[in-house]
Structure formats: structure tokens, C-alpha cells
Simulated assay, not measured.
Amino acid sequence: MSPSIELVIFDCDGVLVDSERLAVRVDSALITQLGWALTPQDIAQRFVGHSRQYMREQIEQHLGRRLPDDWQVPFEEAYWALVEAELTAVDGVKDVIEQLTIPYCVASNGSHHKMTRSLRRAGLLHLFTGRLFSADDVTRPKPAPDLHLWAAAQMGAAPEHCVVIEDSPFGLRAARAAGMRTYGFTGGVNSAEQLAGPGTTLFHAMRELPDLLGAEATAKSC
């Protein structure tokens, strides 16, 4: 029998807000301009779930040169313009969160500023007051387990009693390394094949999640 669930940890981008589709478009254009031709699909496979610092290091390694300190400025301007114009919550996720009867939180490689701005734009921020944890809070971002362990500790939950909802292989790897149960959301930019792994339950629609978590975690099924 699986341990009882004490905490549900959500990733932010691609799980709560449908932002990854926007980000990979902008990243593809930016990195191609820098000299490395990558499609949005390439971006999803290589970078979704990683930190911006990791992306910078990989670009510099491929190009064989350092990027200027302001290399992200064009991305930020284009990305936030798309956010304001197009960003929505992931379909069904608000209903799922409102049904949870146990604690939940967010653990994202994005900054606190990015999480706050994105969740506010998607109409979800009020559900996560005091429940936002960023890679900025720990020494190592995902795919290291530090962030998930930090979030669990702050929420007072043991790792073996946590479940993690992620949409990237790197986030799932981090959760498994933390000793937590993993659920891979395949409704975003990464495929089921990319998200499959030991002990990971895959699901395609967010409204499936309450039934997967069971009666102990939710008030009712969608």
C-alpha cells in the first residue's frame, strides 16, 4: 500500500500555467538568432524544466563563446508580451486545486517574480499565497532534489508522503531523487515517451488528476 498523501507539489510552468508553449517559441527565435538553430520542439526536449542558467551554459558551450550579460533581455521582452496577450491557466487545473483537501504548493525553477506574475495573469495567484517555492531558494535547481525537499520541509511534509506533478523529465527526475511519488502531465510540450520513468504515473488531462490522487486528497472527482 502506498503511503498516505500529505502534500501535493505542483510545478508552475506547463502544469499550472500554459506558458511553456509560449516560452519555447520565443527561445527558438532567440537562440537561432544567436547562432544555434533550434526549433520549438528542440527547445522543449533540451531545456524545459531546467533553469535559465543551465540554458545559458549550454548555449555558450555550443557556440564556443560567452553570452553578454543582457542576452536574455530580448527573450524577456518578447516572452512577457506573449504572456500578457495569450497566457491562460492549464485547462482544468483551477478546479483540481479547489478540490484538494490536503496541503499543496508550487516548486518551480522559475524565479518568484516569474511565478507571481504568471499566476496572477492566469487568475491563480490567490490560491497559492505563502505556497510558492523557487530554485532561487536553494543551492541547486531541478533536476537536483533540493527544491522539492525544501518545499516539503517548509510545508511540514515527509518526502515519502508527497506527490509531485511535473511536465518535464528534469522535474520528474528531481522528484524521484527526493523520494517522492511522481505524476507526469503529458498535456504540454513534452510527450509521454519523454516523461516515462520508474514509478511515474502519466496522465494527459488535468481533470484526471483527482481520480489518480484518490479520495484522501480530494473532495470529489471532476
Rank of each mutant, 00 (worst) to 15 (best):
A217V: 04
F128V: 11
G35E: 05
V26M: 09
G171Y: 03
I97W: 06
V163M: 08
F133V: 11
R21W: 09
V24Q: 12
E76P: 00
I43R: 01
E216K: 04
L172Q: 00
N109E: 11
R181Y: 08
S134N: 08
G35C: 04
G188E: 07
D146I: 01
V24F: 06
R181A: 13
E20M: 03
T139A: 15
Q41W: 07
G188R: 00
A175M: 03
I31H: 06
L119A: 07
T88C: 14
A192K: 08
D137M: 07
H204D: 15
R207N: 12
K220L: 13
V17C: 12
E216C: 11
C222N: 14
E98W: 07
T200E: 10
P103Y: 03
S118I: 12
P198G: 07
Q45P: 00
S51K: 02
N109V: 12
V24L: 14
A215D: 14
G171H: 01
V17R: 02
F128T: 12
R46E: 09
D136R: 09
A44P: 06
G14V: 04
T218L: 13
Q72E: 15
C162S: 00
G188V: 05
G179K: 01
A178Y: 01
G123D: 10
P169D: 00
I59D: 09
T32K: 01
R131A: 13
E20F: 03
P143H: 04
W150R: 00
P103W: 01
V73R: 14
K220T: 14
P74M: 10
G199Q: 03
F10Y: 08
V26T: 09
P198Y: 05
T101A: 14
L63A: 13
R21E: 15
A205Q: 15
A122M: 08
R173P: 00
G197Q: 02
T201S: 14
I9D: 05
P169H: 02
E57A: 06
F170T: 09
S168H: 02
R66C: 13
L149M: 04
Q53N: 09
R21G: 13
A151E: 08
F75I: 15
S19H: 02
A89K: 02
A135L: 09
Q45K: 07
W80K: 08
G64Q: 10
R56A: 10
I5N: 02
K114Q: 14
L149Y: 05
T39Y: 02
V93D: 12
A151K: 03
H113P: 10
L124S: 09
P169K: 01
S221W: 12
G214R: 01
V163K: 01
S108C: 06
E166K: 00
L209Q: 07
R46G: 08
M180G: 11
Q194V: 01
L87H: 10
G214I: 03
C162L: 04
M55H: 05
Q45L: 09
T116M: 13
Y79T: 12
E98H: 11
P210M: 04
A177S: 09
L149H: 05
A175C: 02
M155Q: 13
I9P: 00
A89D: 10
Q33T: 10
T182W: 00
P40M: 04
L147I: 05
G179V: 06
R21C: 14
